[in-house]
Nucleic acid binder design. Structure first.
Lengths: 209, 209, 209, 209
DNA sequence: GATGAATGAGCGTTCATTCAT
DNA sequence: CATGAATGAACGCTCATTCAT
């Protein structure tokens, strides 16, 4: 699958001036609205521009092409997610691994729940526009944070940290995503959350032996 | 997001005759090749037809439209997956839950690994063409099989089966998908697999108390 | 407008054998049915073949192409119309011009009324497939008949016949067609018919002076 | 026969700005040229765009689809025709019915003759694209005008007006159309015109008795 | 003969991108 | 800088016609 060179995806200008900021924000918000209402199929440059109240020409001042817009939008959300995870990791560092894992689940779950539909739409947009490099970058960043956290856990052996970190994060992220995509109702969703926690606890308990 | 009525997605003729079978297979294989080489963006009716060595017109004899083609391709793979899972469930029925869970993991993992790139590409194609109804149908089918299997597990209380089934399947399927999407290498992949098994075992052990 | 050479439009075989006759009739009837139900837009070779219960290949045995089929269908109807008019003219020859004109109106009107929808559909098909040469040929044939009839009218001067024939026929045919295309109800239609007769009578009375 | 909802046929932007006006006019003129040279069969979006010297994309800025273009073209001509008839009716109101009828014939004839080939081509285009609703609307509009005119004729009884209006207009419009479709030469055409007038005069004289 | 699967040119339409104003 | 009319390549899809069986 051909991946577009990242240079082509970078915004044309970093919006430091306030007017630019406002415009870019409007474009992002419009993109989200369109994504939620029409899905990726309805995400055309003109639909976004119209909703943002700017001309297509203006959009092209800030983003060299459509893909760059979607890229930047995902970057925003992933940054927010990464920051949340990093905060959580900073707070939970030094606590037992099971506590840290539960904190991670809570954080991840709440970020996904907050704007569930949008999250779903963004997942799709990433897949559709070959922005996987972006996702990998953020996965690495988040991985650094969680690994750091587990490294500080008093109940984990140093040589187990990487393995456990990989397992826990892969399981947690995958499960959360799958839970939402299966279209479960609220009751099942929250039941699932505590089962996931139980599973992580049990795993850590057995792994620590 | 508009969902296309399933009637519009049904193949035009069931390929019972041998010539049709060959043609349909060629089209499916071409779709896969294109999907792997160019992704969904490159999946045009002409690219598939050309690769399959048939004309577009012929394609349209078997599939009423492009979406139906992708739908049918996914259906094929999901059917294969469901059958494998059902076989596994039949074999593992009556064994302890942890053994059953491990069998499920092995089966699911091997089906997905077999043509890893294709699995990934199909995940995308489902998202892009609103074929989620199809996925839900198969999820329900597979769910019936695993629930049946766990119901026979001697070490599970009847009232726990549904909860445990939901948890295990959501965790397993989500983890497998995520493992592939993270692009882990073979070593990490197989490490992950045994960790996942360990996790399920620990979970079941703690749940059985 | 490019007119297709008539050779290209001729049926491939004159259906003298009875089996051919049946097939050709079935094809014609199917063409009519499709024309009535779907209009020219739905008149595809396969829709006609399917309705006729034959394969497209068979259709091409009898008609070299689609246009030839429509051509032949129109030819059939125009022949029927021409024969009716010729019969009427033979009967009314020698009668006063106004009687002859009324007879012509009655005949023309009844042919059009008989299968009104079909008549309309055929008008369209003629226009769409540039079969105007055909129409002109039949117009000439019908013209010969009516001219012959009026020539025998005792109350017409020989030098007026051509002018009066042209006027009457143009007015009558045009009015009949327009009456049906305006979508008038039965009451207005029949009122119109007697007015048209009155008009022709008045015209002939004044022209004879 | 399926009739397309009129909303789908409305132009996308009313060409008030001068640049748009020019473009739309060019497209209309190109449509006419193509219609005359190739007939409806040759009227493709690209042939029109090419002849108009614009891109297909530009065409679609002004017309939502091909049918809308043909619809708008017919609307233009029918509006022109209706206005001419209305003007004539205003001028001839109050004059004897025969004078009014002759004025109507002159007007109708001249509008249709002015661009005879085009008139013919438009008749076809209406039939082919199910624009008959449009024609009926304009027929009603023109009917109002002529009925109003005849109502003012001093020599007509009020109770006869509707019947006479219907007869005269149906005969006149039908005859004019038929005259053109028969492909008569100039000499016959103008002979026919005065015969039609004579016929109407005679009809009115007899009807007034 | 009869069949109907296969063909592929050509259609109507969309939309990311550009650039004169 | 902002605009949005114009562009045109590329798409999904149809259907008259052919020809191997």
């Amino acid at each position: 699958m051909p991946t577009t060179s990242p240079n082509k995806l970078k915004p044309r200008k970093t919006p430091t001036q306030s007017r630019s900021r406002v415009t870019v924000d409007a474009i992002f918000e419009a993109t989200i609205q369109v994504l939620l209402k029409q899905g990726m199929a309805g995400l055309t440059t003109s639909s976004v521009a119209e909703r943002a109240g700017v001309s297509v020409g203006t959009m092209y001042q800030y983003f060299p092409n459509k893909q760059a817009l979607v890229y930047a939008l995902n970057e925003r959300f992933l940054t927010r997610l990464a920051e949340n995870v990093e905060d959580t990791c900073a707070l939970a560092a030094g606590r037992p691994a099971s506590v840290a894992a539960e904190a991670l689940i809570d954080t991840y779950w709440s970020v996904k729940t907050e704007r569930m539909e949008l999250t779903h739409a963004l997942y799709r947009s990433v897949a559709e526009l070959d922005n996987e490099a972006l996702v990998h970058d953020f996965a690495a960043r988040v991985d650094r944070a969680t690994r750091g956290m587990f490294r500080e856990s008093p109940d984990l052996h140093a040589e187990d940290v990487d393995r456990i970190n990989l397992s826990l994060t892969t399981v947690i992220y995958g499960t959360v995503r799958n839970a939402f995509e299966r279209g479960l109702d609220q009751e099942n969703i929250s039941a699932l959350k505590s089962e996931l926690k139980a599973m992580c606890r049990a795993y850590l308990a057995s792994a620590a032996k």
